[in-house]
Design a protein around this nucleic acid. Structure first.
Lengths: 148, 148
DNA sequence: TAATATAGTTAGGAATACCTAATAATCCAA
DNA sequence: TTGGATTATTAGGTATTCCTAACTATATTA
């Protein structure tokens, strides 16, 4: 199989992320719940699960439940973290509303490497980090003035 | 054909962008130059050109040269503009080096809508816009201190 | 526990976006 | 003007990622 070191497609990262959240907020990730969460049909999930299993990112047996392997968990956490950082940059710094921020984070998380994401996290802390100078407030005013 | 109102795939946006740049910086966009620029094989270009033509974004006849239609030009400009804004945010605000910024902009430009891109442009102007307060300088120092 | 509802999988197919190899058109220079 | 180099296309194939319809396994409940 040998796709060990290859990086995941955006689609497979989404599946991994969904499995992570479902396992966290309850018990086991069921195929139907993954399908609902990602708005795909159930057979698409079956295919994705097989692909993730062949990469040793999940434990999967047909009709059995799905759990993340150690590697899978590590990779999922990276994706989830990226998502979180992007979303809070969009909402807290740029002032984008939650739903749009959520969706954009979901699309952008696959496009940005760790270097940029780390800096974005830094910028969010720097600008929105409870500082007395209220930079974000000034940026909002600037946006209002220039009609952005 | 009727894909008029549908939004373009990331791939087709890349082709449109390449055609725009080649047309601008010289004369006509040739198939081979598009292939070289996007690092794809020539037959892939033929397919993409047919697809763009069916959407009325380019003028294309086999063995003829390629030019953007009015609509195509408008769409290409939007993509190019997004790219430009993202890249300058990455370099000027986040301090990412040019090549990485270039590549990341190329990947992210398809994921972010106009609202977020406009705000990013605003933020870049706000923070790096020749202001006496040198926010970017302070952010760099903050990054250094927190090892980002 | 047997009938039924739900969940999961197979089977088969479509769209996108690539590829290589082979062929056809076009261009250029002797 | 014609033959060789270059460029573009066709033909045929692969991988991904999605779909619907049909079937099978599992779970629930009467």
């Amino acid at each position: 199989m040998a796709h060990n070191r290859e990086q995941l497609s955006a689609s497979l990262e989404d599946y991994l992320e969904a499995i992570f959240h479902l396992s966290a907020q309850g018990q086991v990730a069921r195929s139907k719940d993954i399908a609902d969460r990602l708005h795909v049909a159930r057979p698409s999930v079956t295919g994705a699960l097989r692909s993730l299993a062949s990469r040793r990112l999940i434990h999967y047996k047909p009709y059995g439940f799905v759990t993340l392997t150690r590697t899978g968990n590590r990779q999922a956490q990276r994706v989830v973290e990226k998502h979180r950082i992007l979303k809070s940059f969009f909402t807290e710094v740029l002032g984008i509303k939650a739903t749009e921020a959520q969706e954009a984070a979901c699309r952008a998380e696959h496009a940005l490497g760790p270097e940029i994401v780390d800096r974005l996290m830094g910028l969010t802390e720097f600008l929105a980090g409870g500082d007395k100078r209220d930079w974000v407030g000034q940026f909002r005013a600037y946006c209002r003035d220039s009609r952005i």
